[in-house]
Design a protein around this nucleic acid. Structure first.
Length: 370
DNA sequence: AAGCCGTGGAA
DNA sequence: TTTCCAAGGCT
């Protein structure tokens, strides 16, 4: 028997969204909008940047912290770089934090503290690309912008059974999104597409029975929604190795320094380490110590980055009294939360000093081995 | 334009 | 355990 597919409509998705939208801290939901609440472009932008390649649960606490500490874009623009990096520590992709600060400064200095209200204007700001410019334009300024993220790619690729692989198929998919995006409620439409992808049209085992597009979905009609989206094969991660050096003095302080502004963990705080540029046969030992001390082996730590796996040999020295290395500072071990320490550095420190994060434990971070 | 850039949770 | 991938951007 043959089935006739419906045409997908924005109206059907918006009706679903009105009933099943997620309530999120940065979102003006339909009931709120009905009460006259207007979106705050600063909050929309802040949340969108934090959500780049990052899950909703991971973002929530950071969003609350940033909003409490820097309630407006002008507050963020006036903040110290180190404070912003420290507040971002743990969220990953630290170029986002550097660009976040630059963007806030540009909005404050060049736009009188008001975000541009067009895609083009937003797109010109640091850290705002194709997705974020469209998302902020649609959600904060009600612009009819075609918003496409990973969720939307999945929904669209299934709806139209697009067999061409990503990322090459992006322009085609964006065209489909643009055709579907309504002039009325474009921001809700964008958020609805993303909610649908996050809760119904999931990567595995999508709940097609609850989908507002289930009468229009070509992938469902073909009984294989999980086949889409098709993606290019990914490369395997090489293993690199290196060493990290945790020096402690008798005042209970640890020696830290700042990484260079660009590249991996750029601008973040670290304990002295080797470069990690070496492959598995690279140096991992005491010969790379930043200064002379009674260095003792203290186990290993593994950490998986986006494009390589790192195996770190940890060295510890106690009662360090001095060193000739002046490119860093000593910080109390009991107050490391104030430092801009990325997760891999917290793992290295926790390995050398097990009670370093006793107040706010580093949980059972995987990859720590004695 | 393909590689670089974090982290953690779910399956 | 391994694999995937989450509201991507920059160079």
């Amino acid at each position: 028997m043959t089935t006739t597919l419906e045409s997908p409509t924005a109206a059907s998705l918006l009706a679903w969204y009105d009933r099943h939208h997620r309530d999120l801290p940065w979102r003006v939901s339909p009931p709120m909008a009905a009460r006259g609440v207007k979106p705050d472009p600063y909050r929309v932008w802040l949340s969108e940047v934090m959500l780049q390649q990052t899950t909703v649960p991971a973002v929530k606490a950071y969003f609350a912290k940033f909003l409490e500490r820097w309630p407006t874009v002008n507050d963020l623009a006036a903040a110290a770089n180190e404070d912003v990096m420290a507040a971002w520590a743990g969220l990953g992709y630290y170029a986002r934090a550097r660009n976040l600060k630059k963007c806030a400064e540009a909005v404050a200095a060049d736009h009188a503290g008001r975000f541009p209200d067009t895609e083009e204007g937003l797109r010109a700001l640091p850290g705002i690309g194709d997705y974020t410019s469209a998302a902020v334009a649609a959600i904060a300024f009600n612009r009819q912008a075609a918003v496409m993220d990973g969720n939307v790619e999945r929904v669209i690729s299934r709806l139209y059974a697009i067999s061409a692989p990503l990322p090459g198929a992006k322009p085609l998919m964006k065209h489909k999104v643009a055709l579907l995006t309504p002039a009325d409620r474009p921001g809700d439409f964008a958020q609805a597409m993303m909610d649908l992808g996050a809760t119904i049209c999931t990567p595995k085992r999508p709940v097609c029975s609850l989908c507002p597009f289930n009468g229009a979905c070509q992938a469902l009609a073909a009984h294989d929604p999980e086949r889409f989206p098709v993606k290019a094969a990914k490369k395997e991660k090489p293993v690199r190795q290196g060493a990290a050096f945790v020096a402690v003095n008798d005042d209970g302080e640890i020696f830290l320094r700042r990484r260079v502004e660009s590249g991996l963990l750029g601008g973040m705080t670290e304990v002295p380490t080797t470069g990690w540029t070496a492959r598995i046969d690279g140096e991992t030992g005491i010969e790379a110590a930043p200064f002379p001390a009674d260095w003792q082996p203290a186990g290993t730590v593994t950490h998986v980055f986006t494009h390589f796996e790192l195996r770190l040999s940890i060295w510890r020295a106690k009662s360090v009294t001095q060193n000739d290395n002046h490119d860093g500072w000593w910080a109390p071990v009991t107050n490391l939360e104030e430092q801009a320490l990325p997760t891999v550095m917290k793992k290295a420190i926790a390995q050398a000093i097990p009670n370093a994060f006793a107040k706010m434990p580093l949980e059972q971070k995987s990859g720590i081995h004695s």
